[in-house]
Design a protein around this nucleic acid. Structure first.
Length: 580
RNA sequence: UGGGGCGUCGCCAAGUGGUAAGGCGCGGGACUUUGAAUCCCGUAUUCGAAGGUUCGAAUCCUUCCGCCCCAACCA
């Protein structure tokens, strides 16, 4: 029993927090930043948000909520070449969908361009920045290497007046793209490469999606970011590990501009997930290369893809809580995410019956024209969800793999001469198997026991198997899209040199079934609604769905110990390109 | 090769000198009109390694090993 339990007297209070929250809590307690807590989520609108961003969103918005603070949503748009409005729209939608709200604190770095320009002028005036005429290759030559100091640019010692004049003319468009830059005057021999006179402004004749042709010079990330944070009075600026090296520069800019009560940058490890990729470059490649059907393809790790797939936002938030925040590079197993999704859906999803791969069953001793209405429970996890009526008749569909002509050991489902329970209906026994010329099973002839209505045997006899079904005459036809991991490789990015990660794309990641049957209660579902198709998994209504053509996405399967038992025979599905 | 980080169970991850939380996964069992859910039980004598300090070390010191990031006018 941890000692803290006794100290604060609450036995369950040993909830540990991550190192960032620890810092924020202690800053808050110490009354730093005037007792305020303000974070921000600063995506660049050059792609769609993915599950890795969700981690950052939950962290930033979560911390703000925990302290009665604020979290800003800011478009970090300083590179007009890659950014656009569609991405801004999608980002807003996804953050909102995830369950967070920023009211009027929606900002654009591009709204700060004038102010940033003024800051740059101040740096020049203080002798801390200069206009450099070195270009591309020369710059990197002068920068030196890790183990050798760089050299000062020959233009490093221009007068303040000359710098001011040149910088003004850069803005006015007097110089060609790339011909000059504004650089911070720091230290060309710094061991941290970021401090070797980093670029502040570059010349780019590139129309901006919001500022059009207003500017021909654009500020760099390293300059823009600390100042944007400062302008917005952010207190804690949380970012990923690769920016750790940039922190001295982040602090330098704020110090150079005499910023009072500057924000503090803290870095944490970004998320990696098995069986997928999370780099913007690769996601873009999957979309533009047509390997998936857009950013919101249900197989994508994007938030819009997950939304379409039927992942509840609460499950994603729960997942982010579970994985925690730390500084060690990590690779989270996708099973962790899937478990969060199942847990959420198990509570929420209405149970219905649907048959994805149908085989017809005829109940020989059931009256030809009779239809019964049977009671079915909507959600055993939630009593107030109530019950519904489902029709039963002489002709039904059951799942093809719930029948085996030659059943293996421990197979509890239907087989010649075997009795099973049709869920909420009757016990039936298979009497005959009808096949086509090719030997495929096309129909099962069964008999039912009228005494077992509702699925109960008055004589107390047991059946091991209960299978789902739909009544053929009332069933509604539907398309069902079954999804699997986008990559068969557990670590698609970790493959031998000379190979393309796309070679590990899973050819079976999408399996469209067009001849499925669902129970009549599903006649007119709302887009996005989620269901559990009993014994199959969780499904949601795809936006492609129409009243006369229902389309369901399989969000995730149910746990399937039977399938696992069968697979145990040793074949793991490791991709041939996977290492070791 | 210089700088910055990180190494605790298969995967995440607590732990902050007092004798290794928790979750996922996995294995076993109970229950079962979803082979689901639920419920039990089991899963690190040891914290990258080796030395040292200490009554006591995952936590402190030393050395070593391994992994990640950095030489864009990307973010």
């Amino acid at each position: 029993m941890p000692r803290s339990d006794h100290v604060n007297g609450t036995p369950e209070a040993s909830t540990s927090v991550d190192f960032i929250r620890e810092i924020v809590v202690s800053d808050h307690k110490a009354g730093r930043h005037g007792g305020r807590v303000c974070t921000r989520f600063p995506p660049e609108p050059n792609g769609y948000l993915h599950i890795g961003h969700a981690k950052a969103i939950c962290l930033n918005f979560g911390i703000a909520v925990e302290h009665g603070g604020l979290c800003n949503l800011r478009m970090d748009d300083t590179n007009p070449a890659t950014e656009n409005k569609e991405f801004v729209r999608a980002i807003e939608q996804d953050v909102r969908w995830l369950g967070f709200e920023w009211s009027d604190r929606f900002y654009y770095a591009s709204d700060y361009y004038e102010r940033l320009y003024d800051c740059a002028v101040t740096l020049i005036e203080k002798g801390l920045a200069y206009v450099d005429d070195l270009q591309g290759e020369e710059v990197s030559q002068y920068r030196g290497r890790w183990d050798e100091p760089g050299r000062n640019s020959p233009h490093r010692n221009r007068s303040v007046e000359e710098n001011l004049d040149l910088f003004d003319r850069m803005r006015a468009g007097e110089f060609d793209d790339g011909s000059r830059t504004l650089r911070a005057k720091i230290d060309m021999s710094a061991s941290n490469m970021n401090m070797r006179d980093p670029t502040i402004y570059r010349i780019r004749r590139q129309p901006h999606y919001r500022r059009a042709n207003e500017w021909v010079i654009y500020p760099t990330y390293d300059f823009t970011h600390p100042l944007s944070d400062a302008f917005e009075q952010v207190t804690h600026s949380l970012c990923t590990l690769e920016f750790e090296d940039h922190r001295p520069l982040y602090d330098w800019y704020l110090k150079a501009l005499d910023w009072v009560d500057p924000p503090r940058q803290i870095e944490f490890a970004r998320l990696n997930l098995t069986h997928t990729v999370l780099s913007k470059r690769k996601l873009l490649e999957l979309v533009s290369g047509g390997h998936v059907d857009g950013w919101d393809d249900p197989r994508m790790p994007t938030l819009s893809g997950m939304r379409r797939r039927g992942y509840p936002p609460a499950a994603i938030r729960d997942f982010c809580d579970r994985i925690g925040i730390a500084k060690a590079n990590s690779m989270v197993q996708v099973a962790q995410l899937e478990d969060a999704v199942r847990q959420e859906l198990n509570q929420r999803a209405s149970r219905v019956m649907a048959v994805v791969e149908p085989v017809k069953v005829v109940i020989e001793n059931y009256p030809e024209d009779q239809i019964e209405e049977l009671d079915a429970i909507n959600n055993p996890e939630n009593e107030i969800a109530g019950t519904r009526k489902i029709p039963f008749s002489r002709e039904l569909y059951i799942e093809r793999n719930d029948f085996r002509e030659d059943p293996p050991k421990k197979f509890f489902r239907l087989a010649p001469g075997r009795e099973v329970r049709l869920r909420y209906a009757y016990f039936v026994t298979c009497r005959d198997v009808v096949k086509d010329e090719a030997g495929n099973v096309v129909e099962l002839r069964c008999t039912y026991d009228p005494e077992t209505r509702g699925g109960y045997a008055p004589d107390g006899r047991k059946v091991r198997g209960t299978i789902h079904w739909v009544s053929a005459a009332q069933a509604i036809s539907a398309e069902v899209r079954l999804y699997d991991h986008l990559f068969t490789a557990e670590h698609p990015e970790d493959i031998p040199d000379g190979h393309d990660y796309k070679a590990t794309l899973n050819p079976a990641s999408l399996d469209r079934r067009t001849d499925c049957w669902v129970e009549p209660s599903l006649a007119d579902p709302m887009t996005g609604a989620c269901y559990q198709f009993e014994r199959l998994g969780y499904f949601c209504v795809d936006p492609d769905s129409r009243k006369d053509h229902l389309v369901f996405n399989r969000t995730i399967t149910l746990r399937d110990t039977w399938a696992r038992m069968q697979n145990k025979a040793g074949h793991n599905r490791k991709h041939p390109l996977e290492k070791k």
